[in-house]
Simulated scan of single mutants.
Amino acid sequence: MIYYITGGERSGKSSYAQKLAENLTTTPYYLATSRIWDKDFSIRVERHKAERNEYWNTIEEEKFISKVIPVNEVIVIDCVTLWLTNLYIDFDNNVEKALEFAKNEIEAISKINSKIIIISNEIGMGVHAQTHIARKFTELQGWVNQFIAKKASEATFLVSGIPIKLK
């Protein structure tokens, strides 16, 4: 089962996903998809870790996320945007290759017998991207979000910390 949680940056997605996971199990998994790009981001990662109690199991995987998801568990994947950034860079900004890879991974995830909470960002609702590369990434993000939303049993949009049930 896939729970899809989306919204803008700092909208409360991670906190909402964490509470959902903790309501579903006492021993949730957290799948971190990010690469540590700089010191600020490292601090952000450490803050996220501190927000989770000792009952959380952490898995780190930047690309092949379907390969590391345990069966019959509750897993929070945080987040699609950072994962797509990795793919977009690894595929030399080729949207088609990154999209195909992402769809295949999401398809594989949808077949795993676990409760999977996927966090993503709605980046296309903000300021229009100024560069070609950024505009293409926004398109990639939007198409992947749509694909995940179709696969999800439940979808929630967060605005200012308030969850709005989409599906």
Rank of each mutant, 00 (worst) to 15 (best):
A134Q: 07
M125V: 06
I77T: 13
Q18S: 12
K111M: 08
E46K: 15
Y88H: 12
W83L: 02
T81S: 10
E22S: 09
S160H: 10
N72G: 05
Y30V: 03
V74E: 01
S153W: 00
I162T: 12
Y55A: 10
K13Q: 04
A98D: 03
V71N: 14
V159R: 11
K150Q: 12
I106W: 03
A17T: 05
K150F: 03
E62C: 02
M1C: 08
L31W: 02
T58G: 08
Q146G: 12
H132S: 14
E60F: 00
M125F: 07
D38H: 14
V127K: 15
I119K: 13
I5S: 03
S66C: 10
N113Y: 04
I43D: 09
E96C: 11
I112N: 02
T131H: 07
Y3T: 14
I43P: 08
I5C: 05
L31Q: 05
V127D: 10
N72L: 03
I36E: 12
D92V: 04
W56L: 08
I162L: 14
L31Y: 00
L84D: 05
I148K: 11
H48Q: 14
K115C: 04
E46R: 15
E61Q: 07
A134E: 01
A50C: 06
T81L: 02
E122L: 07
N113F: 00
K167H: 00
I133N: 10
N72C: 04
I109P: 12
I36F: 06
K39T: 09
K63E: 00
R10Y: 05
T138A: 14
I2C: 08
I69N: 08
A32D: 03
T27H: 06
K39S: 11
T25W: 02
E154C: 09
I89S: 06
S15I: 11
Q130K: 15
F64A: 02
I118D: 06
E62N: 09
F157E: 05
M125N: 13
V144S: 05
L99Y: 01
V68E: 09
G8V: 01
Y16P: 13
E62H: 01
R47Q: 07
I106N: 09
Y4A: 03
K97F: 00
E46Y: 04
L166K: 06
L140M: 11
A149L: 04
I164M: 12
G7N: 10
Y55E: 09
M1Y: 03
V45M: 12
I123F: 14
T58M: 07
E100D: 06
T138N: 12
A21S: 09
E122V: 05
Q18E: 15
F157H: 13
V144I: 06
D90E: 02
F41M: 13
V80A: 05
I65N: 08
I75E: 05
R47Y: 02
N121C: 04
V127S: 12
Y30S: 06
C79S: 10
Y55V: 06
A134S: 12
R10S: 15
R35K: 15
R47F: 01
M1P: 13
A102W: 04
R10P: 04
N94Q: 08
V80K: 08
